[in-house]
Nucleic acid binder design. Structure first.
Lengths: 153, 153
DNA sequence: TGTAGTAAGTCTTGAAAGTGAACTTAGTCA
DNA sequence: TGACTAAGTTCACTTTCAAGACTTACTACA
């Protein structure tokens, strides 16, 4: 199977991964959330091959995860910013980071903490149920076919 | 940069991606959460090349995300099950699925729904603050250097 | 005893994607 | 004029992936 075929699969995870399911893409997004915006800055920060960076940024822009915004004219130059759709990936990214903090941080602790400005504390994200507000235990969740289901979910 | 070098980077996301940041790996984990456990079943379900599946399963076992459990002797055969560490990836996976539901589900709606057994409703996951319990707005979060920080976060 | 079947890999070969360095373009600055 | 900058593009080379055939160790059937 080719990766471009993934978006035709009837699974929201496949379709998500067809857009952002590539290591570089997720690192680009991490940087974007840390306010990196320009081509040279992404390149220097990640050490990514320039051709690959060009390709990934283009895909993210085409998918509406990032948008190009001119930051100067003559010479015309653009920077890349997260759209609302892109910001919607924050929970997933934070969940991955916190999983890494938990299992791969060294003795000293995690390299980066997240502060919740409105309460003032460093936090970990907790996945809760949109309906009852309780914290979710994976064993307390049952997947079932939804309205868009075909044969395989 | 090689991908094996990623785990030496001082960033929890890099270290996480060195383990699970590969499209196939995440799809393997999706299947694992849907109770797929055997080599042949993963292979048939995903259409993944057998060599790549072998490799990915081995990495996940080496990293303690999956464990091999014998389900019969003579011939000795193993199945792959999520460990506690693997189950810890559930929030991230659900967040990715829900992002896909939101942006890529067709007119009919998402192919798969998640029911919270203890409250009985289909839900979406909401990221909340472990300290104050409020839902988190990405704009209300400020990352800052943690105890394990080196020069770059 | 021979034949087929099963589960979990392993091997092989051509195609695709990634890597690093040099090059290009359009403009500024001194 | 010459050096510099940002954002790519091009090129030669290496690594990884895809698809399918093959292997191993055992069971079940006739």
């Amino acid at each position: 199977m080719r990766w471009n075929d993934l978006d035709r699969e009837n699974c929201s995870l496949s379709r998500t991964l067809a857009v952002i399911g590539d290591r570089w893409t997720l690192l680009v997004l991490r940087d974007a959330f840390l306010r990196v915006r320009r081509f040279e800055d992404f390149q220097a920060s990640l050490g990514i091959a320039r051709r690959v960076l060009t390709e990934r940024l283009k895909l993210l822009v085409d998918e509406g995860v990032l948008k190009k915004v001119a930051y100067q004219e003559r010479p015309l130059r653009y920077e890349y910013r997260l759209t609302e759709k892109g910001i919607g990936l924050y929970p997933a990214l934070v969940a991955l980071v916190h999983w890494g903090d938990e299992h791969y941080a060294g003795k000293k602790g995690p390299p980066l903490l997240h502060r919740h400005l409105s309460c003032g504390h460093d936090f970990r994200s907790v996945m809760t149920c949109s309906e009852c507000g309780e914290a979710l235990d994976p064993r307390d969740v049952k997947p079932h076919a939804g309205p868009g289901a075909r044969k395989r979910a």
